[in-house]
Amino acid sequence: MKPLAAIVLGLALVGPFLVPRHAADDDDPAGARYLAPLTQAHVVPLRAGGNRVVTSLARTSGGWTGQRAGSEVSFRDEEVAGAPVPRVYLLGTDGLGRDLLDRMLRGARHSVLIAGAGVAVALFIGILVGAAAGLSRPAVEALLMRSTDVLLATPRFLVYLLCAALFGPSTLLVIVVVGLTTWPSLARLVRASTRSLRSQEGILAARAAGCSPPRLVMRHLLPAMTPVVAVTAALRFSDTIRLEAALSFLGVGSPPPAVSLGAIVASGRGVLADAWWVAAWPGLTIAVLVLAVRSAVSRPERLAEPPSVA
């Protein structure tokens, strides 16, 4: 199932480039407000300036008529600046008339980038601390692992909220806090792997040959533990996608203009009965991203991990 994860993540990264943004997207927020998925609309350019997004457009004698924002509108030919351009809103629009397909793709890219950056930070610290603990004297090791335990018991969600209240929410803060609260589980794993590898002949030989600790970690230990670490990193990645979504759902994630899936869900929360699609698509996107990453982790590897909810 690894190809599936690669395809989904790849699509998430390049998605916004594949689907061109409608050039006149923001021109008629009132007309394009809460259009249902698969709505066929026309963009009518006006001579007086600006565009109008009109559904069920029809030709009349000497002009056009159609529906806009729940009422009938008509334009005379001399008002219209050019031929109406047809447009299909595949996934519908949100309350500001923005195309949800575009919002969703950009949100997916945002999720993947934030989770990737956060897990990268966590990997860096986790490998550093874990390898240091695994290779150093018992006293140092105990100190490092006890501080790791403290961070493991820290309710990371509350710590993030705390930091958001203190520093103000930002994309950088999400990445930093994810990095700083995710590394302990990786450090534990790296330490355990280091300790079990430490007495193997290859590692012993490298140490006997005078290999310095950093080189030992980079050239000998890390390659040997890559499969295990990659699994945990992938699962932390999928956790982070949901954590980031939950934070922006609460309104403390990346502030606009960044597009976050959780924030889109939050914007659709109040109109659940009338415009279900606003909340539906971004939520499904999160589920697909998480599912794709998890599917890349084979079953026996998954067994060692607890389920999580963000």
Partner: peptide, 22 residues
């Protein structure tokens, strides 16, 4: 189970509200 497991809990909540309350 795999699908439900990957739903964010807030979205699960909205889904339930949409079905069982609205």
């Amino acid at each position: 189970a795999a699908l439900v497991y990957s739903f964010p809990s807030f979205w699960m909540g909205l889904l339930l509200v949409a079905v069982f309350s609205l």
